[in-house]
Amino acid sequence: MSIANPLMPQMATILDITAETPDVKTLRVSGKDGLPFEFMPGQCAMLSVLPVGEAIFSITSSPTCRDCLEFSIKNVGKVSSYLHSLAPGQQIGIRGPYGNGFPVDQIKGKDLLFIGGGIGLAPLRSLIGYCFANRDDYGQIDIVYGARSPADMIRKSEVKETWAEQPNTNVHLTVDAEFPDWKGHIGFVPNYVTELAFTPANKVAITCGPPIMIKFVLQALDKLGFAPEQVITTLEMRMKCGVGKCGRCNLGSVYVCKDGPVFSLAELNELPGEY
């Protein structure tokens, strides 16, 4: 009996690389014949560049996009800075998908409130794309997205043009401070969520962003009356194996790479707060 080595990457090719912001690039990656593997929104993949190493990234494309996977990657570490330096056509290693993904069935029929900050929009975008592709399954969609500056917003044209045009959908953008060309809302994401006064009835809030933003968004949602079961977030931790064994993302009896990274606030409240 022979089982496959879960740590063994398969080959993938970078189709193109687009600069999104001064420190974020989006990579489009395909396997030998299109998608390297099937996945669900919210799942992640390990990208390998040898001999620099491997790092885990959330998949930002929707599974309804059939020709490639997309990753929006911020230049913060060894692997990410190497990935930024690559050119289209470069072969890399990929393995996945990892994690539980967003509960797409559970949230069917609900109104959805997406709250993203900076690069935190990347995992949300996969689910947003999925919901638009299955538009009838979901109710009203509100998207609150903020960044430090207009230049730090990722997928700008898609957010402003494509998403805002979808039926029964509202996009609310904000930046942290005043900028010459910015005519939209100014202020931190959590405050904007409070100002917009979302009502919790039949709604699920899904948030991702820097830890400090998430912390205050959770407080804002609590004040607006959202129950912990109505709030979903996705965690980011250091990971090496992706299959719930190497120990880095161990949180109580769960491994974030395998049992997460998507948790409801109700689930998170039961776990040690070490994330």
């Binding site: 001999p51 620099v52 190493g53 570490g77 060894k78 931790m237 250091r238 090496k240 190497c246 993302c249």
Partner: peptide
């Protein structure tokens, strides 16, 4: 455990090795 590469640009290997949750960098993010 940890997963690491050993080699240079043209060729090399990937291995896994013991690691320890007692080390500060074990959970240190990029």
């Amino acid at each position: 455990f940890d997963v690491e590469d050993y080699g240079h640009d043209a060729e090399g290997e990937r291995f896994r090795c013991w690691d320890s949750c007692m080390f500060g960098h074990f959970t240190q993010m990029a």
